[in-house]
Design a binder for these strands. Structure first.
Lengths: 204, 204
DNA sequence: TTATTAATGTACCGTTCGTTACATAAATAC
DNA sequence: GTATTTATGTAACGAACGGTACATTAATAA
């Protein structure tokens, strides 16, 4: 037999699915931000009583951290995927175009949790802010490294400053999240992307 | 005599200066955001007891509203001024370059209150969100109208979509605020501005 | 069966939130 | 002077915050 008997753990079994509940917490944090999401609202959305949340995920900060990991692996997984496009220009196009679609997806809350999450906040959110800053710097760095690779393959002119180019693409992406929250449509976001990429550096 | 006797009002005189205290509240809201700024912190910074704040400015939401007006008239007055530059390109250059300097001014809190304020928030902040959205749409509209004027004077090609161009400039500006909060330096911001404007539409 | 383990639901903890009642103090009006 | 007006400082309000103690329930182990 190839069926592996999964032995049940010792005590009372969980009444909720770990990942499902995390997904529901994600929706709340995404809509409200870290501070704007209250444990009461999270509890209600997750369908779990508070002590079970703390037992399973830790405190609010740790729950948010786990939510961020799920967010990266799910809704914004397209970012990492875009890096695999064959050319630097296609990477940028894919990244921004997919973002425009993502940000105007009617089933998502507006804006990207990582791009524009917890920019201003009260005292005691320093760790959350740092974590989000690290994520932001992370995808900007991924862009830069991808552009460095392109440069080494003559896919980008040697004159290009990859740090600046990556920061520019990240800046447009972050601005697009603000635009999405402020009411921009998919068409408008795509038009901005086209404008933003119309200055792409090319070999002569 | 040309000196006009300013007659003192009836009751006990205020122990604080209205605009000075508003300036101190501005610093707190700018640093913390609307929700992150507590009345306790505001009270302490303004040097006024709470009932006096409520009497002079109304509740927290109204205080924030008055702070926004002061913010527009002071720290970000350069935005309206930039519109008066002689050409559309100079308008965009001035707007973004001044923003880069503003956002990296060591004496300011990071980020622009209006560009990226209260993007995510808990229940009960709808009015503040709407007000900030209106301000954001306001300066984007000012850019568009300035570009329309430029177009009518052949300062911009007739093929230009001014709505898109204005939205693109606003998007870069908003992204720059995120970058500033995430640690970008003045030099980096200025490099992004240069990159962002390298595709400026010109008559052939 | 009995012991052990772990998750559950209830009910509450202390703190902080925005806001306000109220008595007092300091000015003008008469 | 006395009355009136307005701002002040103290002190507290009810509600919401993040977090937890504790008894109970439901599973496995022996």
């Amino acid at each position: 037999m190839s069926t592996t008997q999964t032995k049940r753990p010792r005590g009372r079994p969980s009444a909720f699915d770990y990942e499902d509940a995390l997904e529901k917490a994600l929706k709340i944090f995404w809509l409200r931000g870290y501070e704007g999401a209250s444990m009461a609202e999270l509890t209600k959305a997750m369908g779990i009583n508070r002590p079970s949340i703390y037992a399973a995920y830790g405190n609010k900060e740790e729950l948010f951290s786990k939510v961020l990991r799920r967010y990266m692996a799910g809704p914004v997984a397209y970012v990492a995927e875009a890096m695999h496009e064959p050319t630097a220009k296609q990477v940028a196009e894919k990244f921004l175009t997919k973002s425009a679609e993502f940000l105007s997806n009617q089933y998502n809350p507006r804006g990207c949790m990582i791009a524009i999450g917890t920019l201003f906040s009260g005292e005691g959110c320093e760790q959350v802010q740092q974590e989000l800053t690290a994520y932001r710097q992370g995808y900007e760095k991924a862009l830069r490294e991808r552009f460095d690779l392109a440069k080494s393959k003559n896919d980008l002119p040697q004159s290009v400053n990859t740090t600046t180019l990556a920061k520019y693409i990240a800046t447009v992406h972050q601005g697009m999240s603000v635009q999405a929250i402020s009411g921009a449509s998919r068409e408008e976001l795509l038009a901005v992307v086209e404008q933003a990429l119309s200055n792409w550096p090319v070999n002569n």
